[in-house]
Design a protein around this nucleic acid. Structure first.
Length: 107
DNA sequence: AGTGTGACTTGGG
DNA sequence: ACCCAAGCCACAC
């Protein structure tokens, strides 16, 4: 496993239930400010084989980014189960649920 | 070493 | 708020 990939995995593992992070945030946390798409690729390659809370990752608009309707539905289901309210369009309120790892550690 | 991938992000209209 | 175009970067082949 490559270091970058390993760090992304670690970051995602730190997202607490009831919160979400964006691809961009995760990329930033691992030191690659423009690496959002790498996070995407990694999640694809992992395909859930790890015990990752992949459903807590959304895009910068707070949208459920999944393309497969089936998996998309599952993600929304998981989030709802953790108390994250989703709009009819499958969006979450980032102002409410966005998890800031840095600030969480400092506060 | 070059090319393709991808569940993104940002800026402008 | 929505749509579009361009930029991004680590990884696999």
């Amino acid at each position: 496993m490559q270091p970058f990939t390993q760090r992304v995995i670690e970051i995602i593992k730190t997202i607490p239930a009831g919160f979400v992070m964006t691809y961009g945030q995760i990329a930033e946390q691992v030191g690659s400010r423009r690496g959002a798409r790498q996070v995407v690729r990694i999640l694809h390659s992992l395909s859930g084989i790890h015990n990752l809370p992949w459903h807590r990752v959304v895009n910068a608009k707070g949208e459920i980014a999944m393309r497969d309707e089936e998996v998309r539905y599952m993600q929304i289901h998981y989030l709802n189960g953790e108390g994250v309210k989703t709009s009819g369009d499958g969006r979450v309120d980032l102002d409410k649920y966005r998890y800031n790892a840095v600030r969480a550690g400092e506060d």
